[in-house]
Simulated assay, not measured.
Amino acid sequence: MLTLLYLTDLYYQAKGRNYYEEDLYITSKLKEHFNILIGHPQQAIPHLGYADLIVFRNTGPVGAYQEYFDHFVALVKENDIPTFNSFDGKADMKGKQYLLDLYESGYPVIPTVETFAGLASLQNSEKYVVKLKNGADSIGMDVLTHKELFLQNPQDKLIQPFINFQYELSFYFLNNIFQYALYAPHKDKRWELHEYDTTLEDLAFAKQFIEWNNMERGITRVDACRQQDGSLLLVELEDLNPFLSIDTLTESKRNEFIENFTHALLQVK
């Protein structure tokens, strides 16, 4: 059997999510096919020599240990150790700059600028959302009025209009192949999710971002919001360590995903 180093932070406190439950469940299934070593993302480097494959899962925001993470990625590449996800994504893996780039390129993304002066290109909004460029898990996010935004004049941050959307919707892809979709019918309860039956239009929306990212292998979550007119806008493209919420799936759908995930790992060279 191949030895799999499965990196996760079992103690990370995430609002509405239990990382440890998801990863203990997944590893309980993977152990039938791999020798499993479960490690903390900030203690991974000493164990690289034991791994045939590294799975980077619910590790929390890497900004909290960016220097260690960068060193880890450099060593993984230097020693040619395959990882899942592969570290070649262009979205959240690299920070939030992609939201600016995608918006400027005309993709259906929540309008995003990085300066107060840039607001001239957006429609007027009563409130604005300000995010860190390297933020994650809502860390450092503020909701400000136009006046408050003017007074703060944030620098090197993302500024977006506050969208009065219907609900949030997430599409989950494995090696660029669609697996399932979940949505939060109550927009004030982001992680109370239910399975969602996608339309062809929904999938076309999500797939354009998967194709743009062109990541070699891994799990990607496309987070979107449904506007009042029924259209979708990208909120986030999570291509590093997306939470899967597989406990919300039916047993058959959950088993199907685990089978697909296992097969994908066994195919990594």
Rank of each mutant, 00 (worst) to 15 (best):
V73T: 06
A64M: 12
S86T: 08
A74I: 05
K77Y: 07
D9M: 08
S231A: 11
E67C: 13
H194F: 15
H33A: 12
S125Y: 03
Y107A: 10
Y68M: 08
K90Y: 08
G106K: 03
T27P: 01
F87H: 04
I110R: 01
F162G: 04
N153D: 14
N79K: 14
F84A: 03
H47N: 13
H263I: 08
A14Q: 10
I246D: 00
R254K: 13
Q166I: 12
Y103V: 03
K96I: 02
W212P: 01
D156F: 13
Q97T: 06
Y98F: 12
T115W: 03
E78N: 10
Q123L: 15
F162Y: 10
G49M: 08
T59M: 14
I246L: 14
E126V: 06
T112C: 14
P154G: 08
Y68A: 09
Y196R: 01
L10R: 06
E22G: 02
F69S: 03
F209Q: 02
A224E: 02
G106Q: 06
E236G: 04
H33F: 13
N35F: 12
V55F: 09
H194M: 15
Y25E: 07
N175A: 08
L144D: 05
L234K: 00
D202I: 02
H40T: 02
W191I: 03
T250D: 14
A224V: 02
L48S: 07
D156S: 15
R17E: 13
A74V: 05
L5R: 00
E78L: 15
K90W: 06
T220I: 14
L200T: 14
L240W: 00
P82N: 06
G135P: 00
K77P: 02
F34W: 02
K15Q: 14
I258H: 01
Q208W: 03
T250R: 11
H194A: 15
F150E: 15
A14M: 13
Y12I: 11
T8K: 04
F56L: 13
G135E: 05
P61C: 11
L244W: 00
V109M: 10
Y12A: 12
Y180Q: 00
K253H: 11
E78Y: 10
E238T: 06
D52W: 03
F72W: 04
K96D: 06
A206Y: 01
N213E: 06
T83S: 15
L37W: 02
P46W: 05
G218D: 02
I38T: 08
P185N: 09
N79V: 07
E256N: 12
I54A: 08
F162K: 03
F261N: 01
L7R: 00
L200H: 12
F205N: 01
A181R: 00
V76L: 13
Y25I: 04
E168S: 08
Y180F: 15
L10K: 11
E236V: 03
K77T: 05
P185K: 07
R190T: 10
I258E: 03
G95E: 03
Y19R: 00
N241P: 00
V222A: 09
L149S: 06
R57E: 07
L149D: 04
L174Q: 00
Y11W: 13
F162Q: 05
L234R: 00
I159C: 08
P154L: 14
V62T: 08
R17I: 15
D137W: 11
I246C: 07
L2F: 14
E104L: 13
V55D: 00
T145L: 12
T115Y: 04
V113E: 05
S125E: 07
L132A: 13
Q43M: 15
M141A: 14
H47P: 01
H47L: 11
